[in-house]
Simulated scan of single mutants.
Amino acid sequence: MKRAREKDNGVYHAALRGLQIELVKLQRHLIRHHQKILVLVEGRDGAGKDGAIKAITEHMSPRETRIVALGKPSDRERSEWYFQRYVSHLPAGGEFVLFNRSWYNRAGVERVMVFCNKQECEDFLVAVPIFEDLLVRSGIQLFKYYLDIDRDEQKARLQARRNDPLKQWKISPIDQAALKHWKDYSRARDVMLARTSVTYAPWTIVRANDKPTARLNLIRDLLSRLDYGGKAKPRQIAPDRAIVFPFDRDALRDGRLSA
C-alpha cells in the first residue's frame, strides 16, 4: 500500500521533501563533527543512478557535497595503480561524496567488455576489500548501493533514452551492449557482490524497477544507518525491506536479484 501511494506524484514529492530535510540535518551534523561520508552508487545501465544521486544531493550544500563520475581513464591513468585516480576524490572532513560508478567498474563493465584481462579482474577482487578496509579505518563512513532492474525494464528505459532529445548525452556504445550482454553482466554482478560484500563494507541492494520508490527507500536506508542531531523517529525513515535490503548470498538464488 505504501509503495502504491508513493507512485502518486504529489505523495512522492512530499515524501522526498521530508527526506531531503533529514539529509540537510545530516549534513549540518557531519560538517560540525568533521565526519566523512562516501556513497558508491552502482547498478545496471538504466537503473536510475543519476536520478537517485540527484534526489540525494538536490538541496545539500554544494561546497561540502561532491558527485564524482569519472570518464574513461587516460593512457597515463591506465599505467597507474588501479585505485590511484579515485583516491584524490575521497572525502575530507565535513564532506559528503557520492561516486556515480566507482572502482567497481573493473568488476563490471571492464570485465564484461574485456577492457581488462582476467588476472587484472582477479587482482581487483582480492585487493578491493583491503582498500576499503583502509578507507573505513581512516574514518570514512562507506556505503555501497547496487541498483537492480529486470531485463524488460532496462530495455524500455534504454529505448526511452534514445527517443528523448534531452537525454542524448546519456547514450553510449556501452549502453547499446547492455542488453546483448545481459547474462554476462548478471554473472559479473554476482561475483562482485559475493566477493566484495564484507562486514565493514557491505553491499545494499535496491530493487529499482520503480524509480520513485527506489529513490525514497535508498535515502531512508542511508538515513537510518547514520546518527545525527534532530533525527526523525525511526518509523518515519524506515526503508521498505522488500525494496532495499542488505546483500546476502541467498539473494543470488531466491529471485531478489534479476537473473
Rank of each mutant, 00 (worst) to 15 (best):
N117Q: 09
V97R: 04
S197R: 05
Y185V: 00
K211E: 05
D152Q: 13
I67Y: 02
R44H: 14
R256D: 07
L216F: 04
P234V: 07
Y200V: 12
F143V: 08
H13Y: 15
F124K: 00
F245P: 03
P239K: 04
P91T: 03
T213H: 08
G46N: 03
V112G: 02
N105A: 13
P73D: 04
D184G: 08
A251G: 09
S197L: 09
P129K: 02
K36Q: 13
A194S: 15
Q20C: 10
M192L: 09
G46W: 02
A208M: 05
D8L: 14
P239H: 09
A69N: 04
G94D: 05
R161W: 06
F96H: 00
K155V: 01
L226G: 08
A127V: 01
P246E: 12
Q154F: 01
D150A: 03
F124D: 00
L166R: 06
Y12F: 15
R157Q: 02
L222R: 03
P212H: 04
K7G: 05
P165C: 07
A242S: 15
P62L: 10
R151G: 01
I205D: 00
K211W: 07
E95N: 06
L142W: 08
Q154D: 04
D190Q: 05
V191N: 01
I219W: 00
L166I: 12
L226A: 10
Q35S: 13
A214E: 00
R157H: 01
Q84T: 03
P62H: 08
G43C: 06
T57P: 11
F83D: 06
G71N: 10
R162I: 15
E132Y: 02
T65M: 13
I53V: 14
K7S: 13
L38T: 07
R111F: 03
Q236E: 15
L226T: 09
M60N: 10
N209C: 12
A107W: 03
E153L: 01
L135E: 01
Q159S: 11
L135S: 00
L70W: 05
R76L: 12
I140N: 00
A52C: 14
L134M: 15
K72Y: 04
A107R: 02
M1D: 14
R76K: 14
A177M: 12
G71H: 09
E22K: 08
A156F: 04
A208I: 03
R249H: 13
R137D: 06
L134N: 12
D50C: 09
L90M: 09
L125Q: 08
F143K: 07
L40A: 12
N100Q: 06
K180T: 15
T199Q: 12
R215P: 01
G51H: 09
P239S: 10
W81L: 09
G139P: 01
E64F: 14
N100E: 09
A177N: 11
L142M: 12
H13C: 08
K167Y: 06
L98G: 01
I56M: 15
R162W: 07
K2V: 15
H13G: 04
K72E: 12
L16K: 11
